[in-house]
Design a protein around this nucleic acid. Structure first.
Lengths: 192, 192
DNA sequence: TTAAAATGAATGAACGTTCATTTTTCATAG
DNA sequence: CTATGAAAAATGAACGTTCATTCATTTTAA
């Protein structure tokens, strides 16, 4: 047997329940009692792992964000070309947002509401750095447009979030083919 | 004197207060009592204009969305070329998101959380139609890439929302020059 | 004078958090 | 291997607060 310690299992269950309930109801409309019930734990137990409700959502945010960038940069190597590196990262981000749907939707909600406090937000922003570095390298090599990295991000990576939102409402779904199409548009928008 | 009737003034004050407070605290963390206080109205008065809290936020959403598309398409004429028409609309949307900041942030929060109910959401989506029509016309003329309109939207319009978010956190600010730059990238990403 | 608009205290439900109690864990003794 | 008991983990009923909503009363408008 190689299971996690019980306490870790409970914490994980609480994190998972928080993600799911916040996605469905919003943070302030999900009571601690419901989080506890979904995690099959007593309400009091939450306070063994988290200081309070705000601390709970902050911790979940930071952990999901870390999992996201772990996934995004999992196969990143310094010795890849800028083009290869960007393609890997872009595809990873797209895969995460479309497959790890609940986690991605949770991040999107946190990034667009005041439920996360500013320190945790800052913490989350750090994870973008490797991508910004790569883009900068591309600019030095004359491969990437010489504009603000935020501009590059907005036109190449940010659109993926739109697809995620559309997918939730079943309005538009990225298939294998138009993922390729989308990637080409992304690269196109930043390459010189 | 050409003022609005008193009752309309109160309703307007309530709508304004809702936008501001929801932006700062999130919907479920803004009590009706605070909305009333900011609007300088009694809590009971809210229920003369809105059925309940959900109805309040739904109505505000729909009205702000309508104001947004009114602004976006204000100078749209059928006889403009696709390129001219797109440029007008793009610039209007950018202007709205950066100048009518509170309204735009409110929409962003509604579009990324479960606070709005599905019928109101559908209602809000309709407003995009003129843009989709224009893009389709462009595709027929062979000017616009023959891909899903959602793909075109994601890469040309959606990035503006990112700039708005960055502006709020004072991380990156669109200036007159890089608005031009951004527009060029947007057009570039959809033109054939 | 009367109808409409507005008020704000009152109500009851729901929530976050606490803490006295119970259950589980586990090192050690028998 | 089993029994023991103390420490750690978990429980859930209870508490105090906050909130959305109501409605008897007052104010305003015409």
């Amino acid at each position: 047997m190689n299971t996690l310690p019980k306490s870790q299992q409970k914490r994980d269950a609480l994190v998972k329940a928080t993600i799911r309930l916040v996605n469905n109801n919003g943070f302030h409309a999900t009571p601690m009692s419901k989080i506890a019930k979904m995690a099959e734990v007593s309400p009091g137990t939450i306070y063994l792992y988290f200081k309070n409700k705000q601390d709970l959502v902050n911790q979940v945010y930071i952990e999901v964000k870390a999992a996201f960038s772990e996934f995004a940069f999992r196969d990143y190597k310094e010795d890849l070309t800028v083009k290869e590196g960007f393609k890997n990262i872009w595809k990873n981000i797209a895969e995460f947002k479309l497959k790890e749907f609940e986690e991605a939707m949770f991040l999107s909600q946190c990034d667009n509401t005041p439920i996360i406090d500013e320190p945790s937000r800052q913490e989350g922003l750090k994870h973008l750095q490797p991508l910004l570095d790569l883009l900068e390298r591309g600019q030095k090599e004359g491969i990437i447009k010489p504009v603000s990295p935020y501009m590059l991000y907005a036109f190449s990576i940010y659109p993926i979030a739109f697809f995620m939102n559309m997918q939730e409402r079943a309005i538009f779904k990225l298939t294998r083919e138009n993922i390729e199409e989308a990637y080409e548009m992304a690269w196109n928008s930043i390459k010189v």
